[in-house]
Design a protein around this nucleic acid. Sequence first.
DNA 1: TCAAAAGTGTTCTTATTACACCCATGG
DNA 2: CCATGGGTGTAATAAGAACACTTTTGA
Lengths: 244, 244
Amino acid sequence: MGTMENLDHFFKSAFTVDNVIFGFDEGDLKVLLIKRGEEPYEGQWGLPGYFVNENEDLDYAANRVLKQLTGLQNVFLEQVATFGDVNRHPTGRVITVAYFSLIKINQYTIQPSSIANRAAWISIDNVEELAFDHAEILRACFNRLKLLVRTRPVGFELLPRKFTLTELQHLYEAILETDLDKRNFRKKILSMNLLIDLDETQEGVAHRPARLYKFDKEKYDELLAEGFSFELKESRRKMVEHMG
Amino acid sequence: MGTMENLDHFFKSAFTVDNVIFGFDEGDLKVLLIKRGEEPYEGQWGLPGYFVNENEDLDYAANRVLKQLTGLQNVFLEQVATFGDVNRHPTGRVITVAYFSLIKINQYTIQPSSIANRAAWISIDNVEELAFDHAEILRACFNRLKLLVRTRPVGFELLPRKFTLTELQHLYEAILETDLDKRNFRKKILSMNLLIDLDETQEGVAHRPARLYKFDKEKYDELLAEGFSFELKESRRKMVEHMG
DNA sequence: TCAAAAGTGTTCTTATTACACCCATGG
DNA sequence: CCATGGGTGTAATAAGAACACTTTTGA
């Protein structure tokens, strides 16, 4: 921040928040998109977002957007990056701060609002052209998720409170876009002692019912304080030949 | 991005870029700060930054700020986060996008400008109170650097072109705020095959002269394309007891 | 009885850690 | 000849990767 002369000259840009809301359902990683009802980009899919009001912090605005659309509060929400190319918005200079949220898709309830009936969960693999630079924003948030999921136990934000180990594995596979070995995955996850075995099993499935677990947040916070670091390595196969 | 009615209402905020410029000298990680010459926060240290002009992209503005101060271009510069609390700036609603750069401190040349003679390299350990929320911004950038240095070979941006393994180790120690084992560090770094042994040695030192190396950028790009991933683990000592 | 997914151990390989002495130079 | 930092290897331990069969349920 430099000198403050001629400030007025600069006070004519607007900024928005855009929110990449991730959910996980039927083995698929999904994102909540809005079919735009007006210009610009009318009829195209885009991210939920809105202008930041004068009297609200960025994080507050991102939470507001999320709540208006999903009814959810106090869920995982983090800033990712800011996009401010001169021509990114046809109407004027609009900088957008991108956030991403992780929600339990079964808690998502349609809120009565003008955009709600234009919202849809789209599998991340099926996302096509998006309005503005939203494709780039989505990519950045997806990359951040990939990174985060390996160093912090955020995956659980996307699952119901009770889940099976296979569901957890499929979640990781969807996010990391790779296959994981069942036995190694279980061994690793269970060795962290972050799951509570609920001594319950699935019901009504046409195969051996799986045990249900929940994430032990208290334990995690405790271990964190002691210096524990959650870490799931990316499987780097066949690197030997490059390492000489 | 939602509806576009009443746009004018929103177009009255300003935004800036602030740049955390890191350098490495005499075994210390340093940051380039400016002693503010005017209100607000006159006389306090702060980050170099300035308003983003109407017709420039964010990245461009960050590069401009860096160049005006140091004369440097085409150096490592990345966006870290955006800070936009309502009251972070006493003059009005000013959102700032924080960037951080890594420069070779010996290439830094004072540029003739009004702020240059108020600039100084301060050891990261000696930074005290800063203007605005710049302390928070610095912290965020330092954390990002810690993270980045373990997953991408960005450390070399902070060293002269030719460096010794001990200098490299001290750099990592300064950034990670930890001690590393000399033999293990060398083994790990050399096993990546990313350094070119220049077959030169230090001159005029009062001890056995060290070999000089340079970073092999071509090799790195090549390995990257093949799926290689640079990785320096954080040394997590004594975690066994937490893992059961 | 079949289909479908759950659950379970061992061996091999690779990476990480801990650790101590001799070497080359300038003063 | 002394002080200073440079340079080197090995053994023990821990983590990761590869891999196949039995179990439980509903239909």
